[in-house]
Amino acid sequence: MSDAPAILPERGIADRLTALFWRHPRLLLAVLLTPPLLWLGVVYLGSLFALLLQSFYSIDEFSGVVKEEFTLKTYAELFRAQNMDIILRTLLMSAAVTIGCAIIAFPIAYFAARFARGKWKAVFYLGVMLPLWSSYLVKVYAWKLILAKEGIITWAADGVGLSMVLNAILAIPGIGGNSLSTSPLGTFIVFVYVWLPYMILPMQAALERVPTSMLEASADLGASKAQTFRTVILPLAMPGVIAGSIFTFSLTMGDYIIPQIVGTSARFIGLAVYQLQGTAGNIPLAAAFAVVPIVIMLIYLTIAKRKGAFDAL
């Protein structure tokens, strides 16, 4: 007869730690969480805090040296006419891009959610995911080729005899320009293209959750297809649209590569931040400019949350 205990003997430090974690599950949690939280807390939150701090500094107009004293002067500079122009232009573009994305995304999301089965479901899934993940810069570059004056669009318009239409569009002030690649319209097209997958995915997720029984009930109650669409499908898809619009709006607002490569030289918030911190060396004003999208997104997110958009993420 052995009086050995029913538990195994300890085989070293690993077993002892296991026992410790077993008795104190919080300890294991702390061990797991400390490195990532330290990283995100120090690197990321620390940086965000540095951004805020910088935005309350100002730059000495004569020496160009950053004065490390608290001031609201830099924020006041945002309200100058030229800077307000930049902010308004960015907001307008973000809104237009969001609407454009929503319109193009809807049929794709709707078809993928309601009608695509089997092989087609996979095609649509990969067909949206691949452009989402593939190189951002390559996508922008492709559009530089397409929209160039000597590019495929001009060629195609000539080929089908629509160059008159193209020229008429380019002649519209405020939208057009010398060629598509140097017009605000071109900037808009590239933005819509690049952020489109971000709109499709949440939209599709929302549409997939619309129960078929509800559509049948709507039809049973005598609604036409158009009525069902307007009164059942569209309201239920709305949280998805809002979730998608968070991405398209925020991404457009922060982007500075696309307006630099395709479009006029008119500045957007992102470009202003980039130029101010780089060539101009005015880090405080750059930081203040970067705070603008944060504030706008916080307002946007608060509204979106009330509309229940986060259930669709």
């Binding site: 620390g46 540095a50 931040v273 750059a286």
Partner: peptide, 28 residues
Amino acid sequence: QISLLIILPIALPGVITGMSLRSAFSIM
């Protein structure tokens, strides 16, 4: 809060993440 913290770097536009890091490097 932690789940928000993880998502934040990709949820906010890249220009903000970039400018934040730039500010921090400049201050330190």
